[in-house]
Each structure stands twice: as C-alpha cells, then as structure tokens.
Write a protein that binds this DNA or RNA. Sequence first.
DNA 1: CCCCTCTTCTGGATCGATTCAGTCTGGATC
DNA 2: GATCCAGACTGAATCGATCCAGAAGAGGGG
Lengths: 351, 351
Amino acid sequence: MKPTLQAVAEAVGVSRSTVSNAYGRPDQLSAELRQRILDTARQMGYPGPNPTARSLRRGFVGAIGVLFTSRLSYAFTDAFAVRFLTGVAEAAERHDSSLLLVPLPVGLAGARKAVENAAVDGFCVYCAGDEGGIIDTIRGRGLPFVTTSARPQPGDRWVGIDERSAARSAAEHLTALGHRRVALLAHDVLPDAGTGRLRVANVTDVPHPTTRDRLAGVADAFAAAGVAWSDLTVLSAADNDRAAGAAAVRALDAGPEPCTAVLACSDVLALGALDALRAGGEEGRRVSVTGFDDIPEAAPAGLTTVRQPGEEKGRTAAALLFDPPADASAGQIQLPTTLVVRTSSGPVPRS
Amino acid sequence: MKPTLQAVAEAVGVSRSTVSNAYGRPDQLSAELRQRILDTARQMGYPGPNPTARSLRRGFVGAIGVLFTSRLSYAFTDAFAVRFLTGVAEAAERHDSSLLLVPLPVGLAGARKAVENAAVDGFCVYCAGDEGGIIDTIRGRGLPFVTTSARPQPGDRWVGIDERSAARSAAEHLTALGHRRVALLAHDVLPDAGTGRLRVANVTDVPHPTTRDRLAGVADAFAAAGVAWSDLTVLSAADNDRAAGAAAVRALDAGPEPCTAVLACSDVLALGALDALRAGGEEGRRVSVTGFDDIPEAAPAGLTTVRQPGEEKGRTAAALLFDPPADASAGQIQLPTTLVVRTSSGPVPRS
DNA sequence: CCCCTCTTCTGGATCGATTCAGTCTGGATC
DNA sequence: GATCCAGACTGAATCGATCCAGAAGAGGGG
C-alpha cells in the first residue's frame, strides 16, 4: 500500500497540514522544511496528494467531459468529430484541464448512469438532439455544459451553425447546375425504417434534429427550383461512416431516370458515395456528389462540400464552458459556413 | 447548492447508509422504502451520489488515462494515433470505463504534475520513448500502465511491433526496386538540430527510440544493398503532420544526383512528401515514396507503406490494462506488420 | 519590558460518500 | 415459550486530502 500524506507527516514529525502545504502552497512554510518533507516523501514512495481526495475537498476536478451521441469508439470514424475534439483539447490544454471521454452505453438508463458517474466539472456535448435526455441528466447534476445540438434551449450555452441554410447552399449549388433528380444521403434518417432507399413522407418526420434541419434546407432549395420533396430520393445509411455511405448508395438503382446527383449530409457519407459511384464505372463517375463538413479528406478527393469550422467549434465550445460569458444571452454562438466547390460536382450531363 | 446524500437521508428520515444503499445496493432495503427515497431525492434535486466522493471511498475511479507524448491537440493530426485511441475506446466501452485524455504541458515538471494529478486507475501511454520520465512518474504512483514505447522495461506491460524489421521491409522494397539514393524522412530526428536536411553521423545518435529503431532497420537494408548510412539523406520534419512532411521534402535540392525515393517514418509525413513532390511537376512525380502505419488516407493516395494494426494496438493495450495476464511474462505483445505495396513506389526511372 | 506583527506550523472540521459490524423486529421452528 | 434466523436498517469509522482559525515563537518599535 502506498503511504498517505498522513504517514509522511508522521515520518517527518509535522502535521498533515504542513505536508499538504509543502505540495500545494510552498509559501506557507520554510523552504528548508519543505525540502525535508519532499525528500522524505520521495524516499517513502509517497506519490503525492491523491487526486481524488483532493478533488473531493477542493470541490472541483480539473477535467471536462466530452459526450458523443454515438458510440464513443465510433465517433472517431468521423473526421469531423475528431476535429471538434481537437479543438476542445486545445482549449483544455490552455486551461490545464483534462478531457474525460465518456462512453455512453446504448439505452437510456445506461446513458444516464454514465453521465451521473462522470467526475467532471462540466460537459461538452457533441451533436446531440438530446437523445435519451442526456442534456436533462446533465442539467440535473447542476453542471455547466455546452451543446452543439440543433435545438438548444433558450438559456443553454451553445455553439453551432445555421444547419438549414448551410444545407440549402449545397442544394442550391446543385439546382443551379441543373440537377433535378437528386438523392439525399444521411445517417439514420428514420431509425426504425432500415437503411437504403426510404420513403419519407415529410421532412418533419426525421427525428434527428440536425439531419432534419439539413434536409429541410435542402427541401427549401429544391422547392424554389420547382422540385417537390416527394420527387427527391432519400437514402439512409446505417452508420455515419464511409462504408455505410457506400452501401447506401449502392441501393440506388439505375432505372429509367437515374439520379444525377447525391447530396450527402456529411463528408464521410459523401466519400462513401464517391467510392460506390466510382466503382460503378463511367456511368457512376458522372453523378455529382456534395458533402458536408469539409473534413481533411474532402479536398484530396475533390469533394464539393459545405465547410463548417470543426476545430473552432470545439475550441469555442470549450471556451464557452471555461469562460462563461457574463451576459447569458451571449452564450449561443453561431459559426459561419461556406460552400466549397470542387470537382465532385458539375452540370447535369446531357444524356 | 445541490443537496447531499445526508440531506436526503434527513428528509426521508433514514440513515445515510440506507440512502446510499438505495442507489448502490438495492437488495439491502425494501423496495418500497427504496422507491420512497429515490422519489424524495428526485424531488429535492439530489443528483445522485457524488462521483468523486464515491471514488475516494471505493478506491477506484472507473477511468483510465491515455497519454500522448506530443501535445494532446496535436496527437489527433496523426490518423494513426486516432486509430489507436479508437481501439482503446472500444475496450474501455466494454469495461464501462471512461478515458481521461491528459494534456502534457511542455517541460518535465509540468508533465510530471499532470500525470500525478490524473484521477485514473491506470494509464495507456502512446508512443513514448519515456520522454521526460513519464513512465517513471506513473510507476511512482503505483498505477498499472501499458506502454507502446520502443524500449519497454522487462516487467512492463507493452504492446508494439518490431520497429526495426518493419522499417527494414520498406527499405528492402526500395532497394529491390533499384533505389540507392534515398531520403529518409522522420519527425524530430535530432531535436536541437533544426529541420530539413540534416547530417546524422550515426543512427544511434537519434534520441527518439522509435525513430532510431526504424532508421536502424532502414540502415540494415541499405547496408545489405551496399549503401552506407552516410550516403543516405536524412530529412527532419518539425512536426509529425502532413504539412511538416511537405516542408521537409522541399528542402531536398535537385542537385546532380537527386534522390529517387523518399522513405518516411510515418504515413502523414509520407503524404506530405507526396504533396510536395506532386507539386514539383513531372520530375517530382517520379520519386518513389513509402510510408509507415497504413492510415486510412494511405490507400486512396496509393501510398506504399508498412501496415501496423492501429486499432488492435489500442485494443490490446487497454485489454492488457484491464485484464492483466496472470503470467507477467505474457505482458509484452508484439503485433505483426505487413508491407503494403501500392502505386507510390516503383523502379528507379532511367535518367 | 511590553505590545504588535510576521512567519511558521498545528488541530480539528470538513468534503460526500461507502462499508461493515451490529441492532432490532417479526416470524418460523421445535 | 425459548431459540434461531433472515431481512431491514443504523452508526461510527473511513477514504485522503484541504482549509481556516489560531498558537507559538521570533523580531522590531517604542
């Protein structure tokens, strides 16, 4: 068993407080005694104040929690999530804070428990439409938090983008190029309706708020171009990763009037679409593809996409957590997006 | 102020123990009373047992620390590190454990402190040659840990690859293709010697053990092909990322006898090299490039590389931490590597 | 020589739970 | 009717520190 602070105190012949001060408040005791304490401690193999005990007494932990709505190990398959995390990490470094990545077990009760058991000073919640009442659980703990959810509550700190008009810009790009028969590719569009081609009666049926907003923006653009929602094809991918994107696009049958473009709600899905289409030969290569996020892999692949600033999103989220704005109304920050046109999109080929 | 367990106990009119049991040991009290306690707790806004206090009493935390030798926010620029982390996360999920990402401040003292203050049950240390005595600090805390260092101590748990022969296989691939004038590209070869082209008298001068081992393997292969170490060009990149790789390769002057190949010690550097060379026109395109790791971006780029299983490395590391082998001698696991030949490497072009 | 201040150090309360050896109660057993 | 027992609940000790009011002693000023 490792010695405790108590043991060191006895060994040196001073009080616990003094040993504690030797570590945490060097100005509270003579340099000489301090050195003697530190030396005996080292010699006894005392590992320094127990972080847990210290946290308990001090009332704060020195770590912030990062919550991903998806399975944690899955989160890293999306480069955008990784960039977000990078941004959070950067801010955390500056504040000498650690990051606790909390895996959320599937199922409501498990997720609640995970959030309740996390020893942190606050949470950054990545991209939840508050699935499973996670936000409420955090609120219940009374801890500060920042969301990137598409539906922040009025007083909540939030960082995000205008999902709807961002998606709209991608769709307008396609309509301007003449595309009218377009497939929309998103993750888990209707959770219980399976994957591949789906009938979605109404955009508002889509439960995931981010996806819903993006699809709504897309619908706006196409409506303006005279294309009804019901004339658009919806493809649902099983996961938000490249392979699932490719798989979903393969469900797109050629038919007499094949789609001339695929509009994906994330870059990983779009890249998967490109994989599938390029494997589909000349025919497939002509199909335009757009993505969303502008992850690092997008540029080399020539993917046209909507850029949102990933690291900045993470940095801003963490900043909002560490330095809450005095004025609560300044706690919702909307970041800009840009349409980045590359080679993956072009005019509709004449048949 | 949030109520404590004590407050709930008083409100219900039972002892603290009973409230505690209501949360942690449902079988220790009648279902009816338990429900009453839980109800009052909810109603009072009691957030459930404080995780820190619980950890202190129970003696374990439910989180493992992940340490990256580089700056934390930087770690994510290397896709291989991300895959490692993914593997660790997967194992952690299975064990209902969280991951604490600990940023290590630059400088020895800061890093020590960060490690000493981390509330975790153990550590996975990614790719350290034990810079700054981090391993010793962990050992001092008496916590279990797993390294991926190139130089594990005899009793330590470790997961890694045979760096030397893995690198050798890449170099042999190049010698077999006829390459004799080759540039070796690595991160931070001689930390104080700056970046770009460097004179390295001896492989053993390289301080970072992983880099040293890989370069030694490369030297083996070239020696066997009759090329002396001193005839190889060494390029040092400022960081282990794509941009730094590109920058370092630009330091390669054409000269009368230009290099015909670049052997990089990581894929991100190799991809940077490709960026730089491809920008260099026809001439540059002919230069063969090999990488190391086989990150997801390698395949699309056609990069010839040495594959090491990233996620498996992370999974194995975490597994070693969670379920220590009964026989300590089984605590060092070497994973296999494979040379993956793609289009970025080819025979020496005839001048 | 007394009072005051400063520095250095101490003791006890406290952070918020968990644990374990009991106590108490009501019912079954012989 | 005494004994035993399982089930339900309690109390005090404990985890390992930090904090704060205050004590002891040294030095300075009047």
